[in-house]
Amino acid sequence: MRRMRFRRLQDQFAGHLMAALTVFAASLVLLIAVALLMRARPLLDIKPLGQLLTSSDWRPLHGEFGFLPFIAGTLWVTGLAMVLAVPPCLLCAIYLAEYAPRRLRETVKPLVDLLAGIPSVVYGLWGTLTVVPIIRDVITPWAGKRLDFIPLLHAGNPTGYGVLAGGIVLAVMTFPVIISVTEEVIRAVPDGLREAALALGATRWQMVKGVVLRRSLPGVIAAIVLGFSRAFGETMAVMMVVGNVAQIPRSLFDAAYPLPALIANNYGEMMSIPLYDAALLAAALVLLLVVLVFTLAARAILLRAVRRAV
């Protein structure tokens, strides 16, 4: 009888302990946000966040911390990465879900997973060793000769380190997220719909275009949002190829300085300049908030898509 009571007490105690740990894990997001906010307060007290985000005056020694060049850099690199990554990822996911024989799919999926596992410094190394030289030696001179009249493609930066290099490396890094989520939502489309389309004489592509994609559109959008969110905070690989010049890029060949790279590059000296650490942690807070919004949006879209698919 006593043994029984001990076991029940043990069970209750473990239950409470586990509940406490679960609450801790769940409040970690809040904890991180509050910690960053507290450290950023000294700066935010002087200058409201809105002003920091829209000013492009970055002179830490004079107490000027305008984030606009860094936010612009992040948006340029991430936007380009999405433009480059989304079309091949969607086509690849459609192929894997709708066309590929089972064996091919089972060979390719581990490879995509492997791509997700490669550390970001290795991506960065690959970028500096192959992507940057190709841009420097081939693409920039060619664009300088042929395409210089387009402002977006003005080849004013001969080093190869810049938005284009960052976008290419980042695009490859987002392949796995976009492909795996898209493939999953496409495969969740009920077979009956496919059969109905095929029975009406549609070709496979017509079926994909008219039925499968239309049905899984919210899921595909969620996949892209997730990819964007992943790319937005990526640090090391981008930092190694993007040039890190604090300016608002005007062309694909210009150097940029994304927000994560700003944080990572200045951790050494940030304690020696007043308010510098507050500024960098405010930058981290901005990253956190953006990712928060994007993750919640993707989740809401996905949940709705799942509910509709059933």
Binding site: A25, L28, G233, A264, L287, V291
Partner: peptide, 25 residues
């Protein structure tokens, strides 16, 4: 549901933010 939601957000947080948080810790 709330726990899962919060863990989903954690999953998406960039590692540099974990670094900054660890630093403040």
């Amino acid at each position: 549901y709330l726990v899962r939601l919060s863990l989903d957000v954690l999953w998406g947080i960039p590692s540099i933010v974990y670094g900054a948080f660890g630093f403040t810790l």
